[in-house]
Amino acid sequence: MSNTRVREDEILEGMKSHDRRSLAKMLSLCEKAPDMANEILDKLSKKTSHVIGITGSPGVGKSTLISTILDKMNGKKIGIVVVDPSSPFTGGALLGDRVRMQSHATDKNFFIRSFANKGALGGLSPSIYEACDAFEAFGMDDVIIETVGVGQSEVDVANIADTVVVVLSPDNGDEVQMLKAGLMEIADLFVINKSDNPRSQILLSRLRAVTSGNKEVPIYLTNAVTGEGVERLLDDLDDRFFQISSNGILVQKRKKRLLHHAQSIVRREIDHLIQNLEINGRNLKEIRNQLIEELCKKDDQNN
């Protein structure tokens, strides 16, 4: 116990002095001991980074797009969180997003970290809030989060990101249909990637048709391999951050993020309780009451 205390202090001091290895350890703590991570993060001042969520179906080019975004950054400090699914059977995971970004592995301004989603719904990691805070405490200008290649209902990224980029591609079947099922509401920007595919024009007009009438959501055509169209996207992302910083939207979003962070902590507590709960012949109501009772005890322990 005293041993881990020493390491915590080291991580705290390392984070303050922007030591890269301490950030690596901090992020591990976010996964392995999130409560302890929150305690340390609480003691650190944080920069308000632009948190950008990148989501969309498997294979649309999210990772490639992030790599191209990094190509075009000069001088900005960026934290990148890439999330891939865990196997529900073995708990193992193959985290492959990093492959597309390896040309940036040794860049001092960028820090790429892979997370498994550990079965969490929503296409993110259960420690995503802690991880995002850690990057902000490290002083990143932007934090980019790539979600699991999502299906339809994984919209949690909107709870943490200041800006949600929904990426579509003309190779991916009926993407517009998928949008109707959920991603439409959370998109702050649409990117139609793989603009080298001529069918991207058809996708563009279909997307325009379904988005017209809704709030004005800009659409960008990009080729993530050549970088075409990416600069305009970046300029507009920066403009948007400036806008939401000055019109009060960012403040609102951060309040919501805090709520969702708290929710994720309580959820973790409940999951933990459920795993260790003995039923012992009790009925539904009794189990419910005991869960709440145990949850209240947790509060006492922490204070």
């Binding site: 890269r20 290895r21 690596a24 865990s86 196997s87 073995t90 708990g91 193992g92 995971a93 193959l94 985290l95 492959g96 990093r98 492959v99 597309r100 390896q102 592995a105 040794t106 820090f111 790429i112 970290r113 892979s114 498994a116």
Partner: peptide
């Protein structure tokens, strides 16, 4: 992965510097 581990794959043609920085990060 099938043995229950989280496996990060770097892809091919990596320099020692890329590999080590990635593993440490």
């Amino acid at each position: 992965r099938d043995a229950g581990m989280e496996v990060i794959y770097t892809g091919i043609r990596q320099t020692p510097e890329q590999i080590v920085q990635s593993a440490v990060d």
